[in-house]
Amino acid sequence: MKEYINSGSKDTRSGFGAALLILGRNNPDVVALCADLTGSLKMDEFAKTFPDRFFQVGIAEANMMGIAAGLTIGGKIPFTGTFANFSTARVYDQVRQSIAYANKNVKICASHAGLTLGEDGATHQSLEDIGLMKMLPNMTVICPCDYNQTRAATLAVANHLGPVYLRFGRPKWPNFTDPDQTFEIGKALICNEGTDVTLFATGHMVWNAIQAGKILETNGISAEIINIATIKPLDTAAVIRSVQKTGCAVTVEEHMLQGGMGDCIAQTLVRNFPAPVEMVGVNNQFGGSGKPEELLKAYHLDVPDIVEAALAAIRRKGGR
């Protein structure tokens, strides 16, 4: 199996903040808005360096989404920053009408997504945001896996014309992808080639899928590992091609099983190449308080859960 080395754990939100600063320097049309979470979103350097292009909106996310939509009229490229829950569920109608339906060039940048937010608990752990955003026509949904990739994805979305939902997280997390990568929107990234099962993972869970792949390898199972960094538009060709080779799949995400990335994979396969799919995610439950690692264990998103799901998928394949 291809070896991945953690060059030093970093939070993905800092990758976003670093890229936003670069964008500020390189593109005078880039503006940023934040709803009283500048520090949490790592937008403070941008705010300090470009005070005229940074708008503190206070704790008023609905207004932030509307102002961002308005800023595009005149050619600005607004990046909004708040937690994933407040970027989606709290402002769904504003995003739906003023951004998605109007097809405005707003980049909705959402931190603290998923269970790995940790102690703040269910009120702040967004496990529905991928589903909410992927259902909106015109919306692109991106969920990078580590600091380097979040940085690259942030740079990439500025050059994409149209609304984008960019999802990242709070905790320090292994940073293992190429620091000089160019992020290609809509492309599934093959982390490891294999033949027995495909592990489709997104966000923080890509690292966990790689760890699961290593364990599977010691058991003589060859796992193909694919990073679904863009959930919408989904790289359906890559999904189908891989499962045509491996014959079964596991999806892994820090999100509700009902409506997440796994649903997109399952739908693609059902319509094009029916094959056994096991899904690792949160099953119809709200989150809770705890350390990120404790929560991943408690909600069955840990490495052993992925290994078990892979074995189950392979068993089902054998029975066909």
């Binding site: 989404m65 509307g66 800023l71 600005k76």
Partner: peptide, 22 residues
């Protein structure tokens, strides 16, 4: 801009006004 779902237009107008200032 699309409108119909109420309460969103003033925010949009403010954004457009900020864009004009910039």
């Amino acid at each position: 801009m699309c409108s119909g779902s109420l309460g969103q237009g003033l925010s949009v107008a403010i954004g457009a006004a900020l864009s004009k200032k910039l």
